[in-house]
């Protein structure tokens, strides 16, 4: 009896010891990880601060200067505000149109690319890696690069922005869609194949109905992102509200009421579309937690 008791005690001791060693090692690892992370953050901040034109601590005091200027000027001329909002509405609609058209085009491109790069659905299974890399590259090119190059060729206007955003959207949606496609049930496809449907018919009738809610949900999310992108591209010369914003803030003092009107329009649009799309997306996917990007 005594022997067993000692033996049990020893086993418990060993277990406790090894557990504590394990905990200590894990703590050490997370400690090191956190230390490295803090180190990288501090060093990164120091380098960024050093390479910035104005320092962080100097700038911190001025952070409200510009907003205060904008707000005070807008407040002084608050009587004009409704007129200004009305004046910039067409530019806002152009920005929204750029986002909508590019999302639609990117949606179509992403759909085709994803179907071509999913195992079991692809027409040419050997070319799957090619289409995947194509999507990676389309996704990796920032819109601004394509837009600026196209502005050089096609001159200023909304079309360069549409093409640029559509290219990126096709790559981004294609990747998400191919993940959705992986989970599609292949039985309807087989069924359609057995009655002699061609590839387009198999995809349109067998796969798309299954994946449509997820496709729509991601496309809505993308529309939200693309509104922001289209505003930014306007800022570099692709038309729409971003272009007006740049004019109003670069003409120096005296136009800040216009800048305020544009800020308000852009902010309200983004928030409204954000809320609308999140409600729609919840309805489409029944509260599924989706990746944000």
């Amino acid at each position: 009896m005594a022997d067993t008791a000692t033996a049990t005690a020893t086993t418990i001791d060993t277990i406790r010891e090894s557990y504590q060693a394990l905990v200590a090692r894990r703590r050490l690892y997370s400690g090191i990880l956190i230390a490295v992370f803090v180190l990288l953050m501090v060093a990164g901040f120091l380098v960024a601060n050093d390479r910035n034109a104005g320092g962080f601590w100097d700038g911190l005091g001025n952070i409200f200067d510009f907003p205060a200027d904008v707000v005070s000027e807008a407040w002084q001329k608050r009587a004009d505000m409704p007129g200004l909002l009305w004046k910039y509405l067409p530019a806002l609609i152009e920005t929204l149109n750029i986002a909508a058209v590019s999302t639609l085009l990117g949606f179509l491109g992403g759909m085709v690319l994803s179907l071509l790069s999913t195992h079991g659905l692809a027409v040419w299974p050997r070319l799957i890696p090619l289409f995947r890399r194509t999507m990676d590259i389309l996704r990796a090119i920032p819109e601004i690069v394509v837009a600026l190059v196209l502005i050089f060729i096609m001159s200023v206007g909304p079309v360069p922005a549409v093409i640029a955003i559509a290219i990126h959207t096709a790559g981004a949606l294609g990747k998400l869609y191919s993940e959705v496609n992986e989970n599609a049930d292949l039985k309807p496809v087989d069924g359609l194949a057995s009655v002699g449907a061609n590839w387009t018919q198999r995809m349109a009738l067998g796969v798309i109905p299954q994946v449509a809610p997820n496709y729509m949900s991601y496309a809505l999310l993308r529309f939200e992102i693309n509104i922001r992108a289209s505003a930014i591209l306007g800022f570099v010369g692709a038309g729409g509200i971003g272009y007006e914003l740049r004019n109003s803030i670069s003409w120096g003092t005296g136009r800040f009421d216009e800048a305020a009107a544009i800020f308000i329009l852009l902010f309200l649009t983004i928030v409204a579309v954000d809320q609308l799309s999140s409600t729609l997306r919840n309805r489409l996917t029944h509260g599924r937690v989706e990746a944000m990007l």
């Binding site: 910035n52 104005g54 930014i232 800020f263």
Partner: peptide
Amino acid sequence: VDALIWTILLSRAFGPGPL
């Protein structure tokens, strides 16, 4: 507010650069 407007506001205070 979006990155575009944040960028404009912050670059007035901190000047151009990575920070």
